[in-house]
């Protein structure tokens, strides 16, 4: 039964991961990420980490992906990205080769040292650890039976506030506080300057010849930087209209 669950969840999580990488629309990629996270949560349940499965669903699928979707909608970047165009020539091929090579290398090493690479004690030692509860190393915090979800949560709570992990927990709280403050500072709008920077090459309307002639007739000094003059013109027109309408 565990095998069936494993393979179904593995297919779901791998398909979701492929969707994140291959789907063009960022919204679709975020929804594929949800599928992957749910698959990993099922694996957590399979591995008797019940509390972390719940945390995975709540924090990742419920908070982080929603944050992604919120930013996507806020920025309006949900248009499809052309995945076919290669910004740097040959980058795709090199990335595929490198990643595939690393994977194959890892698989070869795993096959060659299949007993040693996991560091798992032999089958008998493992049995005795789980059933008898004897310690591999007395320094470790051991799970009790692990079958009961309530016991899992109690174990995690006790271990988190034990002397071994409580300092890391406090550091974590500090990290979250820094994260909140940093997000507020980064997204705070500075006064006055938040218009987008001009592009490298100005849009075609600024290259119009009649516009340049007009600017020279006015005697503007910076006719070469048409980006600066254009907003001023529009602003003056707007103010003129408003004055006329108010009169």
């Amino acid at each position: 039964m565990e095998a069936v669950t494993f393979f179904i969840a593995a297919i779901v999580s791998l398909a979701g991961a492929c969707g994140v990488v291959l789907l063009k629309n960022p919204v679709h990629a975020a929804l594929s990420l949800v599928a992957t996270l749910f698959g990993v949560a099922i694996h957590f349940i399979n591995l008797e980490a019940y509390f972390l499965a719940a945390v995975q669903v709540i924090v990742y699928a419920g908070a982080i992906v929603i944050l992604f979707l919120f930013v996507i909608m806020l920025l309006g970047v949900d248009r499809a990205e052309s995945i076919k165009t290669d910004p740097i020539i040959g980058q795709r091929q090199i990335a595929t080769l490198a990643v595939g090579g690393i994977l194959v290398l890892g698989a070869l090493i795993g096959v060659a040292f299949s007993g040693d690479v996991t560091g798992v004690p032999s089958e008998n030692a493992q049995k005795s650890t789980y059933e008898g509860g004897t310690a591999i190393n007395s320094d470790h915090v051991h799970t009790n039976d692990g079958v009961n979800p309530d016991q899992n949560i109690k174990d995690i709570g006790r271990a988190l506030f034990s002397t071994r992990y409580v300092f890391a927990l406090e550091i974590t709280a500090l990290l979250l506080t820094i994260g909140v403050v940093g997000a507020v500072v980064l997204t705070r709008r500075p006064k006055g300057e938040f218009e987008p920077l001009p592009d490298e090459d100005p849009p075609s309307i600024y290259k119009d010849d009649s516009k340049n002639i007009n600017l020279e007739a006015i005697g503007s000094e910076h006719s070469d930087t048409a980006d600066d003059t254009k907003p001023n013109d529009s602003e003056t027109e707007v103010t003129d209209e408003t004055e006329v309408s108010s009169e």
């Binding site: 591995l47 980490a49 972390l52 591999i136 470790h140 915090v141 051991h142 271990a159 992990y165």
Partner: peptide, 15 residues
Amino acid sequence: FISFGKEMGDLGGQL
């Protein structure tokens, strides 16, 4: 992490 933690019988993986 969780896979190793289960195999070693150690709660440190989950933490």
